[in-house]
Amino acid sequence: MSPEEHPTIADFFKDMEVGLPTLERPFGIKLWPVFSKLYSGLFGYAPENFKFRQGETHMSTLQETLVALAAYYIIIFGGREIMRNRKPFVLNGPFIVHNFYLTVVSGALLALFIEQLLPTLVNHGVFYGVCNYQGGWTKPLVTLYYMNYLTKYLELIDTVFLVLKKKPLTFLHTYHHGATALLCYTQLIGHTAVSWVPITLNLCVHVVMYWYYFQAARGIRIWWKKYITIMQITQFIVDLGFVYFASYTYFTSTYFPWMPNAGRCAGEEFAAIAGVVILSSYLLLFISFYFATYKKETKSGRPRRNTGKDALIAMAREPLPRPRGLSSAGDEDSNGAVSTAREGSKTRSRKA
């Protein structure tokens, strides 16, 4: 693209579709043309020309994904040991910027998804939207799926902040961040039409969650942090309802046609299995965290009796093991942690 072809601010307002909200323009302004101009300016070609090709598109192979995730775990756990005898960094400015741009990016992607999906769902129904390639796997949606996938690597910076600020690294946080990037990858190469359901719900949660972290970093106290965890749990319940249905009707119509089913559902089998397993693990871990954090005491105020199910709860909320002789990190709130204090102690949630 030549310098003359780079869009200017005036270009974004030229031919802009603005008016009363409609089905195709739910926000009163057509967002895709604006996105298209921004995308073209950044990448040199229109998003309409984007094609996800395994082995050609950046971060489109299993090897690239696994290398990136291995690097993530090496950096955070290696960094934790490097930081053990050093003072924690004060990173409030970068921390604020990080959470603000993730709030904006999540909100923008969510709005673009809504604009693309609303006409399809209203005109053709939910089943068409989650099980038909023309419903949930259109070219614009694939572009948005890929953009969402790339943001999962930006979100790994959350953990870098924890390391540099010498905060505990919990199983829930470190597992969830890595597994989410892997989940998005499997659905992209698996052409899963139901992908938009967990993605849009996750973006809804992220808009609220990153806004909370942004405000908290600015010193603003917010009373509704408990409800972020409730939103996360609700998100996974709805996700699994759709994913279980799509997987069930795919496998029964393919291998057990005598069983009740709604017909074939678009997507590959390995992607369906990955979605069911990973999302189910998220639901269990976040429910466990919720009860460990907010239902820790009985109505009488006494600690709950220790039971066998506490093992999963402990796994979700406790910091990952440190080498022998290392002291624990400080107990301040950190990015990715919604904490609640009782009698001087804090428990932490790692985000979705």
Rank of each mutant, 00 (worst) to 15 (best):
Y101W: 13
V160W: 13
L182F: 15
T138S: 12
K165D: 03
K351Y: 15
L312E: 00
I278V: 11
L320M: 14
K37F: 11
C204F: 11
S345L: 07
S349A: 14
N99K: 08
L69V: 14
L102K: 03
F27Q: 06
Y282C: 04
L162T: 03
T249M: 07
V208Q: 10
A68F: 15
F12P: 00
Y210N: 12
V197C: 07
W137V: 03
Y153P: 00
M209S: 15
S2I: 08
T252C: 15
A217C: 08
R342T: 03
P303H: 09
K296M: 07
R305S: 04
A271S: 14
G275P: 01
M315N: 00
T192W: 08
K152D: 01
P321R: 05
L69S: 09
R86S: 13
F12L: 11
F77E: 10
T170I: 03
T103C: 15
P119S: 14
V205P: 01
S339N: 07
V163E: 04
F251Y: 10
P323Y: 12
T170Q: 11
E48N: 07
I313C: 06
A217D: 02
E81K: 09
L285Q: 04
H58P: 00
V238W: 08
V126G: 13
P94Q: 09
M59C: 14
G41C: 13
E115L: 08
E81Y: 12
F113I: 00
E5W: 06
